[in-house]
């Protein structure tokens, strides 16, 4: 979707807070929320891309103004509601009136095993690459209303396949809880292809893009 989340290249933002310290969290509730999302029982059809899409669907003003972990909070609240696991009234009042029909949650003892768990998204052999390293490609011009990982700033632009990674879950389908895979590539775009003011510079932007995001140049 052409949402507010697609921020690459948007102009008008001010300086970056480059002096921030190395503390991971800046309020106790942030650390708590981060811990909660790692420990909760999940509906079987909650995927990483569904979470991302649900965050993208936050009202644009809230997306730009609400603290980061507060957005996570609201995203999980919305996911619970749309999955029939909670109601707005329960979340507004902080009191559950029904139990969820899900497996029991992670225990403190279970965290030791869960901390080393890395979910894989590659699906070796599930699809055949159409492009090879060095091929010139053009990113698709149009997006679609659902979740996608082709940023607006790269659409219609010409790049070169820099690496070929084999098949990975396609986020556009993953957001619908479908495990469909496509070849994934790293595509290198000269900044001069992306931004008029970068003419003459030799810098590059590299994006990981799926096969259906690309056409042969």
């Amino acid at each position: 979707m052409d949402g507010i989340h697609d921020l690459g290249g948007r102009e008008g933002f001010g300086p970056i807070d480059a002096d921030e310290d190395e503390q991971p969290f800046h309020a106790p509730w942030e650390a708590r929320l981060n811990g909660m999302v790692r420990a909760i029982s999940r509906a079987p059809d909650w995927t990483i891309d569904w979470f991302r899409h649900c965050r993208e669907l936050i009202d644009p003003v809230d997306y730009l103004t609400r603290p980061y972990y507060d957005q996570w909070m609201q995203t999980y609240a919305a996911m619970m509601i749309v999955s029939g696991l909670a109601t707005v009234d329960e979340l507004a009042g902080g009191r559950a009136t029904t139990r969820a029909d899900l497996p029991p949650p992670m225990t403190a003892a279970g965290v030791a095993a869960a901390k080393a768990r890395a979910v894989r998204y590659d699906r070796p052999g599930a699809a055949t690459p159409a492009f090879a390293v060095g091929d010139a490609v053009v990113a698709r011009r149009d997006g679609h209303a659902g979740h996608t990982r082709l940023p607006a700033y790269a659409r219609g632009r010409r790049g070169t396949i820099a690496a070929s990674h084999g098949a990975f879950v396609l986020p556009d389908q993953g957001a619908l809880a479908r495990d469909a895979a496509e070849p994934l590539y790293t595509v290198s775009f000269p900044t001069s292809e992306l931004w008029a003011e970068a003419a003459g510079r030799r810098d590059t932007v590299l994006l990981d893009l799926w096969q259906s995001y690309l056409t042969k140049a």
Binding site: N34, A39, M80, A96, T98, R99, A100, L102, P104, P105
Partner: peptide, 19 residues
């Protein structure tokens, strides 16, 4: 949110502390 998750049987606060 935490109170609702615990009440739903979806979250153990001790696991949050561990994380």
């Amino acid at each position: 949110l935490e109170s609702v998750l615990v009440g739903k049987g979806m979250l153990d606060p001790a696991a949050v502390d561990a994380w």
